[in-house]
Design a protein around this nucleic acid. Structure first.
Ligand SMILES: [Mn+2]
Ligand SMILES: [Mn+2]
Ligand SMILES: [Zn+2]
Ligand SMILES: [Zn+2]
Lengths: 136, 136
DNA sequence: TAACAAAACGCAACAATGTTACAAAAACGA
DNA sequence: TCGTTTTTGTAACATTGTTGCGTTTTGTTA
């Protein structure tokens, strides 16, 4: 786990270790507030924001739109690659019952027709509904 | 314009008329803050939130994800239909330079493979990049 | 047109999310 | 161990969004 930080050019701190552990253990996308609950209130709110930000900038996490309200983060597809340039170009699914958001890593976002002259740099596809555990 | 409100079962108020006018005139997705600037500070912030909410509930506007930070609203595809059950199932494009968000009404969101047992109720596809006016 | 009930509004208060500035503490390479 | 750079904690602030409540407005009916 410390190796993961080093590999992504992030200094090893106790805060970063606990945040990383949260994501490795729970395997789903987490909002700032959810991580805060997991690591406890002893970690400063702002520090946590900065840790999430540094993880994203260094290719450890990627942003996931949450309900058009706030952001969640999820582990990047190839966390163990040195290459940060991978795309995480996959869809996400959010269950409206249990609230969990998961990566659909096998479902890459298809090409979309865009007007002439437009240039797409990034795309976000969020599906909402019920997960297998919450369906009926 | 008053007819539009009536058609969607919304009482005619001065606030609703000015908000509706904003959307009819500017033809792009607007955030709460952007509408507030257009209608002026004399309209209460909370009232504006409630007007946007009522417009969405009655099929006049639909939500558009904005940068995973906040929400924008755009006129529904078939504002003049009595049927509110239309889907607005199209992609959106946000320009990272000018900040404008537009509906790509000709680009419906394609079907995505989802895990067995999952049920999709709604989907949001946001493309980000540069619009034709901001490219180079 | 007057009266009434339902809906919308204004205001206050609150919660959640996110950002910035600055000084203290910790990490890391030399 | 020393010195530099990064990270952290704290405070202060901004934006976004929600709830409760009393007042005003709207649409309907007598
Ligand atoms: Mn993902
Ligand atoms: Mn749209
Ligand atoms: Zn679920
Ligand atoms: Zn533009």
């Amino acid at each position: 786990m410390e190796a993961l930080l080093k590999k992504h050019n992030l200094r090893k701190t106790s805060g970063r270790l606990s945040v990383l552990q949260c994501f490795l253990e729970c395997g789903k996308a987490l909002s700032h507030g959810e991580v805060q609950e997991l690591v406890g209130q002893k970690m400063d709110r702002v520090t946590l924001y900065r840790i999430l930000q540094s993880f994203e900038e260094n290719g450890l996490l990627h942003k996931v739109p949450d309900d058009q309200v706030s952001v969640k983060y999820a582990l990047c597809d190839h966390v163990h690659d040195l290459d940060h340039a991978h795309s995480d170009n996959h869809a996400h699914f959010k269950c409206n019952s249990c609230g969990d958001t998961v990566c659909l890593e096998e479902s890459s976002i298809p090409e979309i027709n865009i007007p002439r002259g437009f240039q797409v740099n990034q795309s976000f596809l969020l599906l909402e509904g019920l997960c297998n555990e919450c369906v009926d």
